[in-house]
């Protein structure tokens, strides 16, 4: 555990909590892609199956349970409790174009051809692209609420901090996981355009809106 890893985890946690609170307080999931949230729930479910097979640490177990719990709570709020506010017409990204290739890739390129390892690999690949339905939705409507942009910033920052964590671990522990690193780079790159808009617009007090 190093400072980048810890702050990365906390940034991830902050993102998840921000989204849950935004939906809960406003009693609305307008502007939020339910498809991205289903993908994240799928990511956590397939990645944290090792909860049943091995114990790493209390921190590890607690965070995994919180992430999974919050992911399903978010999906529940969007598709059940506040379903009337869900903007399904703008959430039109075809997720099968992500899930099918990612499934194929995780069977082809993995560390070990075992069910748990393939599912872990699937979750890593899927997480790297799971935000695309949300970004697609914003590009379609041309705007995002400020609180939604804070959520996206924390979510992008988390993976960027993990990149520093992997650099740290490579230098000081000789550890590296090529699958996680490549997917993490892809994931972080997908946020770059958004990071630029966040810094140039949102941090200067303007609403994030894209030119028509």
């Amino acid at each position: 555990m190093n400072i980048f890893r810890l702050t990365g985890d906390l940034s991830h946690l902050a993102a998840i909590i921000i989204l849950l609170l935004k939906i809960w307080k406003s009693r609305s999931c307008a502007g939020i892609s339910g498809k991205s949230q289903i993908l994240f729930a799928l990511v956590f479910t397939t990645r944290y199956l090792d909860l049943f097979t091995s114990f790493i640490s209390l921190y590890n177990t607690c965070m995994k349970l919180i992430y999974i719990g919050c992911a399903y709570a978010t999906v529940y709020l969007i598709y059940a409790k506040f379903r009337a506010t869900y903007d399904g017409n703008h959430d039109s990204f075809r997720v099968e174009f992500l899930v099918v290739p990612v499934g194929g890739l995780s069977v082809l390129i993995n560390h070990d051809f075992s069910p748990l390892e393939i599912l872990w690999t699937f979750s890593i690949y899927l997480e790297s692209v799971a935000i695309l339905p949300q970004l697609f939705m914003i590009s379609k409507t041309g705007e995002a609420e400020t609180i939604t942009t804070h959520y996206l910033f924390c979510l992008g920052l988390y993976r960027a901090l993990y990149l520093f964590n992997w650099i740290w671990r490579f230098y000081f522990e000789g550890f590296f996981d090529m699958i996680a690193i490549v997917a993490g780079v892809v994931q972080t790159v997908l946020y770059c355009d958004f990071f630029y808009l966040y810094v140039t617009k949102v941090l200067k007090g303007k609403k994030l809106s894209l030119p028509a």
């Binding site: 985890d9 790493i56 996680a180």
Partner: peptide
């Protein structure tokens, strides 16, 4: 350590 062991990172 086996790769199929539990993962430390989240």
């Amino acid at each position: 350590k086996e790769v199929t062991d539990g993962k430390d990172e989240l």
